[in-house]
């Protein structure tokens, strides 16, 4: 079965951990993830700049590893990302910011990618809130 997974909450929210555990279980169960889409505060989980204390769990790193290791289509809403300072090289240049801060495996794109993912997938599962 094909899943699309959308994350709306910041890395510190338990729901972002649930989304990650769910995504891992989807793949372990032999299903396919057509796209992971980060929206609203979920875009913080695709930022490369935050530094997590060593004794704490690094949600963003875990997401990056999952996307990289399984070559998933990881998409971050560009409008949500720009207003939160999560920029790729192209956007950093366009808006004359000092540095890019989008982690490697992620792509910035529009909300249309979420819509398309729901059309491609059998199920859309959204995670947000606490």
């Amino acid at each position: 079965m094909k899943f699309a997974i959308a994350l709306f909450s910041a890395p510190h929210a338990p729901s972002s951990r649930r989304a990650l555990r769910f995504a891992e279980a989807v793949l372990a169960g032999g299903h396919e993830i057509v796209r992971v889409f980060f929206y609203q505060d979920g875009v913080y989980s695709a930022a490369s700049t935050p530094v997590t204390p060593q004794d704490e769990w690094d949600t963003a790193a875990a997401w990056s590893a999952l996307v990289r290791d399984h070559q998933l289509d990881g998409v971050v809403c560009i409008a949500a990302a720009l207003r939160r300072g999560v920029l790729n090289d192209e956007e950093a240049q366009r808006y004359e910011r000092d540095a890019a801060s989008l982690a490697k495996p992620w792509e910035l794109s529009g909300l249309g990618q979420l819509h398309e993912a729901t059309q491609l997938a059998d199920r859309l599962v959204c995670f947000g809130g606490p």
Binding site: F3, R21, A25, G29
Partner: peptide, 19 residues
């Protein structure tokens, strides 16, 4: 558990999250 959570999503026709 999480594997059962995934299968639940497959069993039901739609999943509605109360965000």
């Amino acid at each position: 558990d999480y594997p059962a959570f995934v299968e639940l999503c497959a069993t039901f026709a739609k999943v509605n999250s109360w965000l």
